[in-house]
Amino acid sequence: MKHEEIQASISARLDGEAPLLADDIVAAHLTACPECRDFFQRATALQGALKQPSPTPDLTAQILAQAGPAWRRGPGTRLVIAALARIGLLVHAIFFIIWGVQLLIGSQPDAAVRIAVACALVYGAWRPAILAGLLPFLGSWAMFSTGLEMRNIFLGQANIAALVFLFSSAICAGLAWWFRDYRQDSSWLNANLATT
């Protein structure tokens, strides 16, 4: 009988498969053959080592200790950006009202649009979720106005301040909308940090 057949039978038995040879034949061979007996001992030791997973340390405390300061910094930054964006919306609303009143005094038909946008910006500063509907309007207005002002830019008669104002109002509205959920996020975060 060959050693390879005995060792294949031992491996099959340890793996839970049907052995190639009967158990009594393998047992008789193991008592007489030191090479196969050594193979059997090494295979059973390896199988025992593979079945018992090594204990892994609990890294939760270390991860939370490193992540905690970053979590605590996040809501403060979001609050500052949201507050500045909302203040920016209010400042832009004031300038839109001034712009609209100047156009109204001059009997310009665009006065109502400026005053309506000012009202929308004030409402957006109060309820930033509505800014998702206002952003396409502000962005397209700024881009369309840029296209119309190209001729005046080349002639040196452009109203660059109005374009910068339109783009900055769209940026403020975008930031206020992007950071609109800061209260919910920070309250969730504070509740989770309090439990750790």
Rank of each mutant, 00 (worst) to 15 (best):
A93V: 01
Q62G: 03
T77G: 09
Q52W: 06
C119E: 01
L104I: 01
G100N: 04
C33F: 02
R78F: 13
L79A: 12
C119L: 15
G48Y: 01
H92C: 12
G100Q: 04
I115P: 04
Q62E: 11
P34M: 03
A120V: 09
W71G: 12
P69C: 08
D38P: 04
L134T: 04
R42P: 00
L64Y: 11
Q62Y: 07
F39A: 06
P57W: 08
L84M: 13
F96T: 01
P75L: 08
A32Q: 13
R37M: 15
V91C: 09
V117W: 00
L30Q: 02
Q41Y: 00
Q52Y: 08
L103E: 14
F96Y: 11
R37K: 15
L50R: 14
I97L: 10
A120L: 15
I63R: 12
C36L: 07
G100E: 03
T77Y: 13
H29S: 08
A82M: 03
T44Y: 02
A32Y: 06
V101D: 01
A70M: 13
G124R: 04
A132L: 14
S54I: 14
T60Y: 06
Q66Y: 02
I87Y: 13
R86H: 03
G68F: 01
W99Y: 11
D110E: 12
Y123P: 00
G48P: 00
P34R: 10
P75G: 15
A132W: 04
Y123A: 13
V113K: 04
Q47L: 08
L103W: 10
Q108I: 04
V91F: 09
A125I: 05
Q102V: 10
L50Y: 10
R127Y: 12
A116W: 04
W126L: 11
L46F: 13
F39H: 15
Q108C: 04
W71V: 11
L103N: 14
F40W: 14
I98K: 00
G124W: 07
R114H: 10
G74D: 14
S54T: 13
A118P: 00
L121W: 05
R78C: 09
A125P: 07
I115V: 13
P53F: 06
C33T: 02
R73I: 10
Q52K: 14
P57C: 09
P53R: 10
R72E: 14
A70T: 06
V117R: 03
A129M: 10
